[in-house]
Amino acid sequence: MKDRNLEQQLADKLGNRSITPSAKAWDRIANNRQQGKTQKKKKKVFAYYAAAAVFFLLASGYVFLMQNKTDVIITEPQVVDGGEVKAPVLPSEEAVVSKSVEIKETEAVAYKEPEVLVKKQSVEVVTEKQEMASVADQEIVIKKKQPEFNLHVEPIEALVSIEEDKFYEQETDMLLKEAVKDVAANKHLSNTTNDTALLKEVEAEMDEYYREKAMSIFSLKHKTIRIAVKDKQ
């Protein structure tokens, strides 16, 4: 017999050696497999629950965002620009989300009547106050005349969904313009101004504004919760 490399013997004899496992070995493998399957099922169920939870969160977030948008009703035209009557002033085209404003032809015709009136008023302003000639060319906002205006114009109700902040910015701009015109018309020039009093007045107005805003949000939330509770019952 030739000399044999020990490593070759290892490969030949140990490499192909078979050792019979104990009788319970297969039962243990089957048991392991069964446990693995149940764990996989549990993982699947957990994954479904997780997906459902994520979906619920996203849906509730979407509903919450939608509820923050409020509907604003504009009942009358507010701005007269150089004798022209504009349609109800919307904050911006982007702000209109849910519904578009449709103005019927009859309503559009009804605007033409106050156009004449306003023109007359603007002419009166110009004749009475000659020094205001330069200002008269600019935009004139006449808010005080609006009640008369409403007598001729059929009230237009347009349900527009807008963002509140933009609406109030527009309103602020409009009030500023009105103040400029008043100053130009020397309406308040005779009054002496008191800085502190003015500041207090503005602060009071702002407080009131924010209080109203907060109350409107609270009432809206309250309403939503009530509806939700009612639906649940």
């Binding site: 140990l14 192909n16 050696r17 078979s18 050792i19 019979t20 496992p21 104990s22 070995a25 297969w26 243990r28 493998i29 392991n32 497999r33 693995g36």
Partner: peptide
């Protein structure tokens, strides 16, 4: 199974541990 237990036994001295490893490997 028998062949694979032989493989595990080459690395692991203890027969019981070798069988445990074979079972894990088979699973």
């Amino acid at each position: 199974a028998a062949k694979m237990l032989g493989v595990c036994r080459m690395y692991i001295k203890d027969m019981h541990y070798a069988e445990d490893v074979m079972i894990e490997g088979f699973t």
